[in-house]
Each structure stands twice: as structure tokens, then as C-alpha cells.
């Protein structure tokens, strides 16, 4: 049992050691192309002027805030169903990165909203749902940090993650309902489906770049976490041997 547990993380460490440098180079190149297009090529929006440049980072952050949660949900499933030790590690490491990206989605949205809506924050349905998502990330991190035993913490946070998966659509729906009830419909709504190709291409490249960045950070954090668990196990063996 124990031998199998450790075999896969070791293989994972070897694999990521060869893949990570390449992935980092690809990420940097994608960012270089994307940022070049955003700064020098992408046109200003006829309504929003140059502030539309915030969209090229805001939308990828919003996308990643959900992508991270989906990653965590998949890992949570892996933890509970297959009890795979790498799944624990993946879920635990995705949470702080997801929280950071969700925070950035909120912060860039706020910086975009101030010149466009004239206010830093509106209780718009989308913003409110993302805020609730951010709080859920923080709750998951708090749960992981509070339970000392890593295996038990992983299972508890896996259950909470899956409960969140079931609840997020309900929260989204109820916040939409709440918003239409309270909000006068004068609030500016974002572009919709009609987005020009000259904006779409840079946006997609930036979204790809940020997704790659997430992968790089996630893999690096997972390597750290595997080492941390090894150190923990070795310390325990050492302590048991010293008695």
C-alpha cells in the first residue's frame, strides 16, 4: 500500500522535472505574443475607449477562477473515489492559486468598473457570484490549514469542494434572480456575443497564456507539496526512531 502510494508521486516528480522548463518557455512566449497584440495591435473599443485593454486580463482571470475550481473538483473526486494521493496534492495546491486569480478577477473588474460605471463596485449578478466564489476559496484554504493531518484535511476539503460544485449553480441562479429583483436595468452590460475578431484573437491568446501560467504554477506548487509530505513522513520516522 505504502509503496504504491509513493511510486506515483516519484514518477510525477521525474515527469514534471522534464516538462516544466518547456512549459515555462511556452508560457513566456505566449505571454510575449499576447501582450504585444494587446498593447500595439488591438483596437480601442468605440464605446469604452482604451479601458477595453483591461478586458484582456480580466476575462482570463474570471475564466481561471472557474477553471481552478473545476480542477479542484476533479481532484476532489479523485481523492474520494480513487483515493489517489496526487489528487489530494493537486486539490490543495490549486486552492491558493485559484483564490489569487479570483481576487485578480475582482480587482481588475473593479478597476474597469470605476471609469465605465462610475463606481468601484456594483452588486451586479456576475460580480456578486465571483465574490461568493472568492469567499468559498478562502473557506477551503482555511479548512485545509486548520486540520493538521494532511490525509484528513484532504478528505474534508474534497467533500466541501464537491458540495460547492453542487451549490455554485444554485448560488449563481439565486444571485441572478436577486439582482433582477433589485437592480434597475440601467447598468452597462458587457459586450455580449458580438466581439470583433481583432479583439477576440488577442483575448484568446491571453486566456491561453494565463491557463499555461496556471499549469506551471500548479505543477510547481504540487512538487513542493509532495516534498513537504515526504519531509513530514521522514520527520515522523526520525522521531519514532529516536525514542
Amino acid at each position: 500500500m505504502r509503496l504504491i502510494d509513493y511510486a506515483n508521486p516519484t514518477r510525477f516528480l521525474g515527469l514534471t522535472a522534464t516538462v516544466l522548463p518547456w512549459l515555462a518557455v511556452v508560457t513566456a512566449l505566449t505571454f510575449a505574443v499576447g501582450l504585444y497584440l494587446v498593447v500595439f495591435v488591438a483596437p480601442a473599443d468605440y464605446q469604452q475607449g482604451e479601458t477595453v485593454k483591461i478586458m484582456y486580463i480580466h476575462v482570463p482571470f474570471a475564466w481561471l477562477s472557474m477553471f481552478c475550481y473545476v480542477t479542484m473538483a476533479g481532484s476532489a473526486f479523485g481523492t474520494l473515489v480513487w483515493r489517489h494521493p496526487l489528487a489530494d496534492v493537486s486539490a490543495k495546491c490549486a486552492a491558493p492559486i485559484g483564490a489569487a486569480f479570483t481576487f485578480l478577477a475582482l480587482a481588475t473588474g473593479s478597476l474597469w468598473g470605476k471609469p465605465m460605471w462610475g463606481t468601484w463596485w456594483v452588486w451586479d449578478a456576475r460580480l456578486t457570484s465571483v465574490l461568493v466564489l472568492f469567499i468559498m476559496y478562502l473557506g477551503l484554504i482555511a479548512l485545509q490549514e486548520t486540520i493538521e493531518d494532511p490525509a484528513r484535511a484532504a478528505k474534508a476539503s474534497a467533500i466541501l469542494t464537491l458540495v460547492g460544485v453542487v451549490n455554485i449553480p444554485i448560488i449563481k441562479f439565486s444571485v441572478d434572480w436577486w439582482n433582477t429583483l433589485h437592480q434597475p436595468s440601467s447598468v452597462f452590460r458587457m459586450g455580449g456575443s458580438t466581439i470583433a475578431a481583432s479583439m477576440l484573437v488577442p483575448l484568446l491568446i491571453m486566456a491561453t497564456a494565463f491557463t499555461l501560467l496556471f499549469l506551471v504554477l500548479h505543477l510547481m506548487a504540487m512538487r513542493n507539496e509532495i516534498l513537504r509530505r515526504r519531509i513530514r513522513a521522514m520527520r515522523m520516522i526520525e522521531a519514532a526512531g529516536a525514542e
Binding site: 475607449g49 482604451e50 486580463i57 489569487a100 481576487f103 485578480l104 480587482a107
Partner: peptide, 22 residues
Amino acid sequence: FGTHAGFILAAYGIAILVVVVL
């Protein structure tokens, strides 16, 4: 970046800051 340069730079600035810190 036009009249709202401050907001655009602040958005990119905070994004870079948080990613670098992470």
C-alpha cells in the same frame, strides 16, 4: 492609453504584482 491610463496601468500592475508574489 487615453484618458483612463491610470486605471489600465493599475489593473495590469496589480495583476503582475499578485502573479509575481505567487
